[in-house]
């Protein structure tokens, strides 16, 4: 119990050593298992390096050039389709449900709890479930659509280019929308009812009030939700890997899948690093552009 020193150090001002000891274990861990691996992976882009053989040789920009000349544009295109689809769709569903629940309909609390289940289940379970639903031979989707007369014969949804991508987006939407819903609902509940009352008195209809009262009030939350969803989907791996593995014929391959496949099936760490480097540069560009547009005040 050092008594005199404590009195001098004042209220919040910790002595340096104490703070360092508090922060050090966590910081060391994050540096060792996040920052170092990330930088090292990006540096690998400039080397010829195999996953299984020791040593590496400097390769300059050869890896990057080979990726750019190879399937880079295809990967970009597919990653963007997945990202935009899996961001917009959950947003629409989540917003719809948040608005519906916010009207105070009966059973609101129970509904909110039950609707969270798709968000809780592991990504692998999400993938299995939708693989089974979309199954070409015995799938329930084919069964229902055919009995409604919407299709003539069972479809192999995951073996066709467009429908495979749509299937992935639907599966991802199913597991993402609850989080959007909860975030937006929390935001909606902070909108003061008086604002709506005042707008109503001024003769604004439901739709008008949604766009001039609700949306401006939710601006901050909406832009954070969209940004995070975008970042997460841009990097999503689990569902794509389990459901299609990037197929059919590579048409649902995204950057995440390509990096993984190149490193752990192709054993080519240099090329995987090159894809990763381009991927991260793109992500930073897109996020910067997004922040500029969506949140001009914070960007400054």
């Amino acid at each position: 119990m050092t008594t005199t020193r404590q009195r001098h150090t004042g209220r919040r001002l910790g002595d340096g050593a104490f703070v360092v000891m508090l922060v050090l274990p966590g910081l060391a861990l994050l540096l060792a298992i996040v920052l170092y691996p990330l930088i090292a992976a990006l540096v690998t882009a400039f080397f010829e390096q195999s996953l299984v053989l020791p040593g590496r040789t400097f390769a300059g920009t050869a890896n990057i050039a080979s990726v750019l000349e190879g399937d880079f544009l295809q990967l970009l295109n597919q990653t963007l389709w997945f990202t935009v689809g899996a961001t917009v769709l959950p947003f629409a569903v989540g917003l719809g449900l948040a608005l519906a629940l916010n009207t105070g309909i009966r059973g609101q609390r129970v509904l909110r709890g039950v609707l969270l289940v798709p968000w809780l289940v592991p990504g692998v379970v999400v993938s299995f479930l939708w693989l089974w639903i979309f199954n070409s031979n015995y799938g329930v989707l084919n069964g229902v659509l055919q009995s409604l007369g919407l299709i003539d014969s069972p479809q192999a949804w995951l073996s066709q280019e467009t429908s495979a991508m749509v299937a992935l987006i639907i599966a991802k939407t199913w597991t993402s929308f609850p989080w959007v819903m909860v975030m937006l609902l929390a935001g909606l509940q902070t909108v003061p009812p008086e604002l709506h009352e005042a707008a109503k008195v001024d003769g604004a209809g439901t739709i008008r009030r949604f766009f001039s009262v609700t949306v401006p009030h939710l601006r901050g939350i909406i832009s954070v939700v969209l940004l995070l969803e975008f970042i997460w989907n841009f990097q999503h791996f689990d569902i794509i890997w389990v459901m299609t593995g990037g197929g059919p014929a590579g048409t649902t391959r995204t950057f995440a899948v390509a990096v993984y496949e190149t490193a752990f099936h192709g054993l080519d760490l240099g090329k995987a690093g090159a894809i990763g480097l381009l991927w991260m540069v793109l992500l930073m560009l897109l996020v910067t552009v997004y922040v500029r547009f969506a949140d001009p005040e914070r960007a400054r």
């Binding site: 919040r12 922060v23 994050l30 920052l35 992976a41 990763g276 991260m280």
Partner: peptide, 29 residues
């Protein structure tokens, strides 16, 4: 506690969960 580098350290911690796992694995493995 308020200490120098607190803000940037907090941002680093926040950002560190936004890096893709497949890329981290390239080195972690």
């Amino acid at each position: 506690h308020r200490f120098r580098g607190r803000k940037s350290l907090m941002s680093f911690v926040l950002a560190s969960q936004l890096f893709p796992q497949s890329l981290l694995l390239v080195t972690l493995y």
